[in-house]
């Protein structure tokens, strides 16, 4: 605004900066929205699916093995009676330890007791169950 005294000097305040300020606000708003795109999406949950597959495989392998003494299969033998379970538990533990990859821990639950490691809370666990004539045998696996 021209000085009323006609000296010819202008006040530089508030002239260019208003538009630039508006533009600055606009840029900040646009970039704020764009920052929403910068976040990575979480990957698909493949660990759970893989653990479930491991458990299914372990159960399938055990269910197809001949028993050490009596019973239809190895798993059926373990589920038959508390005495059978006590007798077979060490062998079962060793067998499933051999079958599974080294980076997995496991727990096998039968109607007469459980074998394996203690299951930690809050970890992804894969589970598979097979039904035998004397009860269900469940195998749970998780990453060590």
């Amino acid at each position: 605004m021209r000085e009323p005294d006609g000296s010819g000097r202008e006040r530089p305040r508030g002239q260019l900066s208003l538009s630039v300020a508006e533009a600055g606000v606009g840029i900040v708003l646009v970039l704020a929205v764009a920052m929403g795109f910068a976040y990575d999406l979480p990957g698909p949950n493949t660990r759970d699916a893989q653990l479930g597959t491991y458990a299914e495989d372990a159960v399938t392998v055990l269910a197809g093995e001949p028993p050490r003494h009596r019973g239809a299969t190895r798993l059926a033998e373990v589920a038959r009676s508390p005495a059978a379970f006590e007798r077979e538990r060490t062998a079962l533990d060793r067998r499933i330890d051999r079958i599974l990859p080294d980076n997995l821990l496991y727990r096998v639950e039968t109607p007469h007791g459980s074998v394996g490691f203690r299951e930690p809370a809050g970890v992804a666990v894969g589970e598979a169950t097979v039904t035998t004539v004397d009860g269900d045998v469940t195998v749970r696996v998780w990453y060590a």
């Binding site: 538009s19 630039v20 533009a23 606009g26 840029i27 970039l31 764009a34």
Partner: peptide
Amino acid sequence: PAVAVALVLLTSTAGLS
């Protein structure tokens, strides 16, 4: 020109987004 500069800045920001 200030408005023009501001609009150019905004356009490039939109393009960046």
